[in-house]
Nucleic acid binder design. Structure first.
Lengths: 241, 241
DNA sequence: CCAAAAGTGTTAGGAATACACCCATGT
DNA sequence: ACATGGGTGTATTCCTAACACTTTTGG
């Protein structure tokens, strides 16, 4: 997060990102924890510069936080309830961190700007978790992946945002063929199935699932993957187009 | 449209409304024409007051323009391309209407505010066209219903907005049971079918369509409607819940 | 009685689901 | 050989699309 400044960014409009990754059969969300006393969590977010488009802004924010340039993203909803502001959270944060913040810190400087009522555009992103190098911002203590079922309680409506993002993901995943953004370059059919099972939180029948996915005609079958296990070696696949 | 003023509204954020109605087997959109020389058309739009939520703002704008309080609406997308502004259109408008505008008119006063780069939240609304009393704003010459296939060319990306709105409507119509918002209180099955045919721009089989709609279990069958025609009288239906 | 349009039933096709079997792999 | 897990084929169910027939209405 940069010092906003009134001129550089559009006022009272922000972007919040729900970054989905997949690992160990779990759908995960990348969430930073603020480096202050009091357990403050908030989705990666940012503001929109005057000379950039909103998708472009989301892309910039996502690159800053993940290191990935070519990222899959999509807006899913705007959040703009009356009085939607982080002011109570920030006031609490300041109260709990009087010493650390001092008087010159930008949080005090920009307090009024940051704590205005904000409308926020929600974007969700799908990434190959292995390619991400999570980038803490200067005010983050940590930034990590959390199973979407066990998310920390975040500020404002950020937990709702994740719910809505997942809802949209589930609706779009088949139609837009975007699931493969969550997987590495090559993968087995079982991995695809486990990914789907993580996303929908329900089991799929193995044979029918394979048929369904292959019928999409978007996978290229590569060589077999010998794992050393005492069973038939699965094929590797690559997503094409 | 009111004189915006810097304090009352959120800056650089607007709402544009695609208001769908249905009449004479045609899906129509309510579009005002500005009362200036030069054929300027623009979707009904407005700004978000500091103390109101975005849905609430959309509702207010829609009520102002249609006279209907309890209106079905839904956000469908945010439009925020770089340099998205009505400035070139407004400059052209002013140039073509020098005499009419004069010096005291608010368009001159608020020119800088209005012509900033704007991010706009797109809402679509579904209304019973018979209940609408289109309300021109003070700067409109007219406000009328246009078949979505023969829309006038509007400013900025407003024609794209209608396309995206219709796309979303098509996706949501079955899932959310919202089609009936476009019909009057009571209607025949044929009217429902013709509505669907207008929306999807393709024919449906009569018997299967009837089955599909009745299987939704949301219609109440009322008395028959005798039109005087020499054929079996159709049932009237009412949407319930 | 007839034409027109509405209502309803019946069949056919195809997709999604369930069930079953065979194959490759390393111990 | 055998246990394990992967690949594939077949049957069943379910939903949708297509076809057909009957009923009601006013002239």
């Amino acid at each position: 997060m940069h010092v906003p400044g009134e001129k550089k960014y559009i006022q009272q409009l922000s972007i919040d990102c729900v970054i989905f990754g997949y690992q160990q059969r779990q759908l995960k969300v990348l969430i930073p924890k603020l480096d202050f006393t009091g357990d403050f969590w908030a989705l990666p977010s940012g503001y929109i510069q005057q000379q950039e488009g909103i998708d472009q802004a989301a892309r910039r924010i996502l690159e800053e936080r993940t290191g990935i340039k070519d990222i899959y993203l999509e807006q899913f909803r705007v959040f703009g309830a009356t009085e939607r502001t982080n002011r109570p959270y920030l006031e609490q944060l300041i109260q709990l961190n009087e010493e650390k913040i001092g008087n010159q810190h930008f949080i005090r400087q920009e307090f009024e700007w940051i704590t205005q009522r904000f409308v926020s555009i929600g974007y969700y992103a799908l990434v190959d978790i292995n390619q991400v190098i999570p980038q803490k911002s200067e005010i983050d203590e940590s930034m990590g992946w959390y199973n979407y079922k066990e998310l920390p309680t975040m500020i404002m409506d950020h937990n709702d945002m994740v719910d809505k993002a997942l809802e949209t993901l589930r609706l779009n995943i088949d139609q837009k063929l975007i699931a493969f953004n969550l997987l590495p370059e090559t993968f087995t059919m079982k991995e695809v199935q486990e990914l789907y099972e993580a996303i929908f939180d329900k089991p799929f029948a193995r044979n029918n699932f394979q048929k369904k996915i292959l019928d999409l005609n978007v996978l290229e079958r590569l060589e077999k993957k010998f794992t050393g296990a005492a069973n038939k070696a699965p094929y590797l696949y690559r997503f094409q187009k």
